[in-house]
């Protein structure tokens, strides 16, 4: 079986974000494998561990530094990786198109995993666009999955803790949710072993794709400035609580 896992190289959420020229962020900060993509890689690797003749290929679209994220995926157990290098920031329409072309140029996917969203762009949509480009069915926010006889049964976390159980025939696309699994921490040995695994680098231009007519442009970026009161309410517990309630009712009118 051929499994592709689409991963993204994203800024660590703990990193300080500095806006430059009202449009970019200073990229001299830690970048890492998108958290939801860790669940995606873990899911693919677990399937490969149970099924012989399965290959897990990690793929990403990004600048050269994204190789770091591919190495994380390889350390977790992916067999090889592909970097489609592109220095231009891409929206999800473009990214999905590039991923689809690169996957098809590489092999025939039986299963494609991706995280349900990336923590930097929070668009929740790339895996849907990828599925549409490949004409495959797609499920998102998947928290359990089971495969039998070429059919994938997934539980998708839904509103207010509810779950939807759905079925799709393979090949299909799965958007991994956080509850899908506990991603492994690679051992030192696995990290060393990963250094020998292949990372193929291709240029997005080599795929000779038409630029999609539709696109999303980021025209401005501004930092969020927090200016909350930070008022510590003093007094005994009874007094402090009474003060709090008075403010919430009379000043803020939220209760």
């Amino acid at each position: 079986m051929q499994i592709y896992v689409c991963v993204k190289h994203v800024p660590d959420s703990a990193a300080r974000v500095t806006v430059v020229d009202d449009l970019w962020i200073d990229e001299n900060i830690t970048f890492l494998l998108n958290p939801y993509d860790e669940n995606a890689v873990e899911a693919a690797v677990r399937i490969a561990e149970k099924q012989p003749d399965t290959q897990v290929v990690a793929i990403t679209v990004g600048r050269a530094a994204a190789v770091g994220t591919l190495k994380s995926a390889l350390a977790m157990g992916a067999d090889r990786a592909i970097l489609v290098q592109s220095d231009q920031p891409a929206d999800s329409l473009q990214t999905a198109r590039v991923l689809a072309a690169a996957i098809l140029a590489d092999g025939a996917p039986d299963l494609i995993f991706a995280g349900r969203m990336a923590i930097d762009s929070e668009g929740y949509q790339t895996h849907f666009r990828l599925a549409a480009a490949l004409d495959l069915p797609v499920a998102t926010n998947v928290t359990t999955l089971d495969m039998q006889n070429g059919v994938l049964t997934a539980e998708c976390e839904f509103e207010a803790g509810g779950r939807m159980i759905c079925e799709m025939p393979l090949p299909c696309v799965v958007g991994a949710g956080k509850g899908l699994n506990e991603p492994r921490y690679p051992t030192f040995r696995q990290i060393v072993k990963a250094r020998k695994k292949e990372i193929r680098q291709i240029n997005a231009a080599q795929l000779q794709l038409e630029v999609p007519a539709a696109r999303v442009e980021l025209t401005k970026l501004r930092p969020v400035v927090e200016n909350r009161r930070g008022e510590i309410l003093a007094g005994t517990p009874e007094v402090a609580v009474a003060r709090l309630i008075r403010r919430l009712r009379e000043r803020d009118r939220v209760i």
């Binding site: 800024p11 959420s13 007519a213 539709a214 696109r215 930092p223 969020v224």
Partner: peptide, 22 residues
């Protein structure tokens, strides 16, 4: 055809301009 939304773990707000037919 534009909207503001949080980007980068809620630390920034980006203005997105949508281009296309829909």
């Amino acid at each position: 055809h534009s909207a503001e939304k949080p980007l980068f773990s809620g630390k920034t707000i980006g203005t997105l301009r949508l281009c296309g037919t829909h």
